[in-house]
Write a protein that binds this DNA or RNA. Structure first.
Lengths: 207, 207
DNA sequence: TAGAGCATGTAATAGGTTACATGATTAG
DNA sequence: CTAATCATGTAACCTATTACATGCTCTA
């Protein structure tokens, strides 16, 4: 009965009504993709697994001899599993942020290179903002009658707030790095430095 | 010559000076863990692989007959690979945010349940803030002479800004859900809703 | 002398991406 | 007729977590 988060996501999507694997993918590509993703290579095998576990059932729809599509629907068991998960306490998950990994080793290249990277990152975040605004507009216009709309809007709002915080950070960091550059940071000697006290931080974290 | 992000992270950590796999892990557990993580099960095999590729070399230090530890150091090739990566443009990465996945299906449970989840999530984020402040304090006090300090502080600042944005969102979302609850949202009929126009959003995204 | 920390590693498993492969239908 | 969209699926591969296994050293 082990079930991963993406499996539960699929159950959740099917709770909105019966649909094909292809339809499920569209949800991940449209209104849910900004906080969760899944590929066909995951969706089809998972639907099979959910079916084997009795959490979904499918009807094969044959409009003609050659073609068939599988329409999946939640079972009572599936709805129960979904609701059980929704009531279990949410956990904390670590983040992986590549721009920070790069900046952490920033001294290995000239300051100007790091400035360039943040400018690229800022463009990505600006694109994300546009995408989120597009989703918000869609939700307000096309989902005005959708009973799920209030919850959907919460997810978009999260994205907008976080991405705006990223953009704030970009501006501030660019200013700081330009200042560093002016102060001749690149010309400093690379004296080795070792902090033995980092251990005490690590200790607390691993508990 | 394929090399993943965590492999590059290890190269980066070794650029601060030769050290053991155990030492590398401590960096992920202390000042780098808030934006990148790696377990022993990843670090030791990766060090072996990096060694095979000539990006790191190791000396086996034997303080006595029984014990041995492997001290790894970057090679010229390794330093070159690291710098090459640092100059390549950073890409955009999707996020997976479990609290949003849950809220997306929030209508499946009473509003009070979703409020409870956001309160739990808020506690996680408050803990993260404390952790980040601890790291910042450590960096300001113990790394005052560290030439990498300015870059390290940038990574902490990112975390603080983003987590504070999350906390803002928590407050606002809690207020909205309390309002929804008051308005009798839970008693609404669950009319089925299907948005055919979601497809147009999906189309743009998949391009 | 017991517990915490130092130190290295493997095996099983889980989770996910990408490319490949196939073929029908529909709109311009 | 041709391009886009609908629709399903597999195989190879990569990345990462967890549990397990081992044994030394130092400090209270």
């Amino acid at each position: 009965m082990s079930l991963n988060k993406t499996g539960l996501a699929i159950l959740g999507i099917l709770s909105r009504g019966p649909q094909t694997g292809y339809d499920v993918k569209k949800v991940f590509s449209s209104i849910a993709g900004h906080f969760w993703q899944a590929s066909y290579g995951q969706i089809y095998p998972l639907l099979k697994k959910l079916n084997a576990q009795g959490l979904v059932k499918h009807k094969t729809h044959k409009p003609n001899l050659r073609q068939a599509k599988n329409i999946y629907a939640l079972t009572a068991q599936g709805r129960k599993s979904l609701r059980h998960w929704l009531r279990s306490p949410v956990e904390s998950h670590p983040w992986r942020i590549e721009i920070l990994l790069r900046l952490f080793f920033g001294r290995q290249v000239p300051v100007a290179e790091n400035i360039r990277q943040i400018e690229i990152y800022r463009r990505h975040k600006q694109d994300e903002i546009l995408r989120l605004e597009e989703i918000e507009r869609h939700l307000r216009e096309e989902h005005a009658e959708d009973p799920d709309q209030p919850y959907y809007l919460l997810t978009v709002d999260y994205g907008q707030k976080v991405v705006r915080a990223c953009l704030d950070w970009c501006e501030q960091s660019l200013a700081r790095l330009r200042e560093l550059e002016k102060q001749g940071y690149d010309k400093q000697k690379a004296k080795p430095f070792d902090c033995s006290n980092c251990e005490s931080l690590a200790k607390k974290h691993d508990k």
